[in-house]
């Protein structure tokens, strides 16, 4: 038993998210997490597809206007994700798949920042070919977002301990 996890699971917030029958407790936090996932992974994927050659007439530089919405979705998921973690810390932290998910998100977000910094700040880019590095980044971004989604969904099927109280 981990005393920190035991304490966290006994806090009022953790108990409320986990046990309240209010739809705005666990169910809606999970729904927000899914909406954020759709927008952060989906908008990133749309930019990646453009970099990889889809919709070539879209001026690449202008896609940066969708970055604020992408970051709002990311922060929605950071906050809702922490709340879900507070509800079931043992369930996530004792599952290796959870760390696979976090690693995928780490890489995907680093790539998003890199695309925002390099590709979206190069006004000459729309005139010429996209550098090879940009295409690799876009391909890796699609891979890591899909990996984060798969790992996240499989959390429900791979955990071994639900809480400090028991095994299931």
């Amino acid at each position: 038993m981990d005393p920190f996890l035991l304490w966290l699971e006994s806090t009022a917030l953790s108990v409320w998210i986990r046990e309240s029958i209010n739809v705005f407790a666990f169910p809606m936090i999970l729904a927000y997490h899914t909406i954020g996932m759709g927008f952060v992974a989906g908008l990133s994927a749309a930019v990646d597809l453009r970099i990889l050659g889809a919709a070539r007439r879209v001026p690449l530089l202008e896609l940066k206007r969708f970055l604020p919405a992408t970051w709002v979705a990311f922060w929605l998921n950071a906050v809702s994700g922490v709340l879900l973690l507070i509800a079931y810390p043992t369930k996530a932290l004792t599952n290796p798949v959870f760390y696979v998910k976090l690693t995928c998100i780490g890489f995907a977000v680093a790539i998003l920042r890199s695309i925002a910094k390099s590709i979206f700040q190069n006004p000459n880019l729309d005139l010429g070919e996209i550098p090879r590095r940009g295409k690799w980044l876009a391909g890796a971004s699609l891979f890591f977002w899909a990996g984060a989604i798969f790992a996240g969904r499989l959390l429900a099927y791979t955990y071994t301990r639900l809480s400090q109280g028991g095994t299931q």
């Binding site: 989906g42 969708f66 899909a146 989604i149």
Partner: peptide, 25 residues
């Protein structure tokens, strides 16, 4: 969930353009 993200990412981006985001596209 992957399909959901692809749908909301591309169609949502198009909807946002209709609403006035990234008008130069």
């Amino acid at each position: 969930f992957v399909g959901l993200s692809l749908l909301i990412g591309t169609i949502g981006m198009f909807d946002m353009r209709l609403l006035g985001v990234a008008k130069r596209i």
